[in-house]
Design a protein around this nucleic acid. Sequence first.
DNA 1: GTACATTTGGAACAAAATCGTCGAATAAAG
DNA 2: CTTTATTCGACGATTTTGTTCCAAATGTAC
Lengths: 191, 191
Amino acid sequence: MSANSKQQIIEAAGIVFERYGFKKTTMDDIAYAAGKGKSSLYYYFKNKEEVFEAVVAHEARQLVAEINKAIDASNSAVNKLRSYVNIRMKRFVQRGNLATALNDNFLATFAFIEKIQNNYRDFEVEMIAGIINEGIEKREFKPVDANFTAEAILTCMIGFEVPLLTKTKTTEESVKKINNVIDMFFYGICT
Amino acid sequence: MSANSKQQIIEAAGIVFERYGFKKTTMDDIAYAAGKGKSSLYYYFKNKEEVFEAVVAHEARQLVAEINKAIDASNSAVNKLRSYVNIRMKRFVQRGNLATALNDNFLATFAFIEKIQNNYRDFEVEMIAGIINEGIEKREFKPVDANFTAEAILTCMIGFEVPLLTKTKTTEESVKKINNVIDMFFYGICT
DNA sequence: GTACATTTGGAACAAAATCGTCGAATAAAG
DNA sequence: CTTTATTCGACGATTTTGTTCCAAATGTAC
């Protein structure tokens, strides 16, 4: 099982999925983009959905790396949280196969995406909670329940993703809106 | 035959074609986007290709209007020619169903597109020739054969479209390149 | 070299998608 | 009401697509 070939396929699939979405992308498309025969894909993946999941997982890893970098670059907890939200939203719209995956039945697709995302929810909560805890230590935030607050913020953010999935709105508009909400969180949290 | 419904379909089809290209777009996609039943499309169009042709024709008309506007706004013949080239290239990449129509067999698609475009070639030659003639009258250009020169410029421009069709390059890069060539034309033409 | 595991792709096939047609339903017009 | 324009659901024929199977090719260790 060459990790090289597998990665190659994942990256090729990422490009094609992003262009055409999940439904319209055929295994032939992926194979052609990866420079392999169609049946070779089945040596590395069980089916189309598994390829898609691998792509999403790969992009999620990239996203995490990017977020970590931005977080490290910020000094205050407030800025860390802000960077986190901004990057996450931007990514979700731009490079997101998650977003372009919608084609036919919206609810079915959304459930499909949600299932994949759920694996990362815990991770995200942990990350946000970490930032909040740091903010509490630094006296930037009130001593709230970090996990509970993190859950709330994340849920709120997911709420903002839904209109991004349905209507192809501008990122800016949504970022502006969500920043307002984040501000609300801050003014309720900050000492 | 409601011109309204037909136009509605054409515009919806334009959006879908632009997103997915000719091959990946189904009649269902178009119908859904236009808010009609699939079979209703066949009341207005013979088949998928005819819908596509109507879309391209529609966009061509828009392009012509845009070009005419820009040409009228320019004073010198040199600037008119430059505006013309810039708009044409930009359009070709951005809103061009012509460009996104490529999916599988490149040559077949190209032939398909070429066939449609040929109807407009004469028109374009005439337009360029008009600009050149004006330039000659105003002593901006040498008294060259306007039609022949127009043919040359157009052919040259089509040559620049090919890499735009194959590789998804930036517009800027191509515009820069073609502007260089246009400059070459100028320095060979200008008095 | 042989023996073995890894990797690839051609052929085949069932299931799904898709195009375009037909006829009936509905709306508009006269 | 009669006629005409328009829409849509259902259907058959054909093509596409997802997936499997198997043999060929390639690499690897002895």
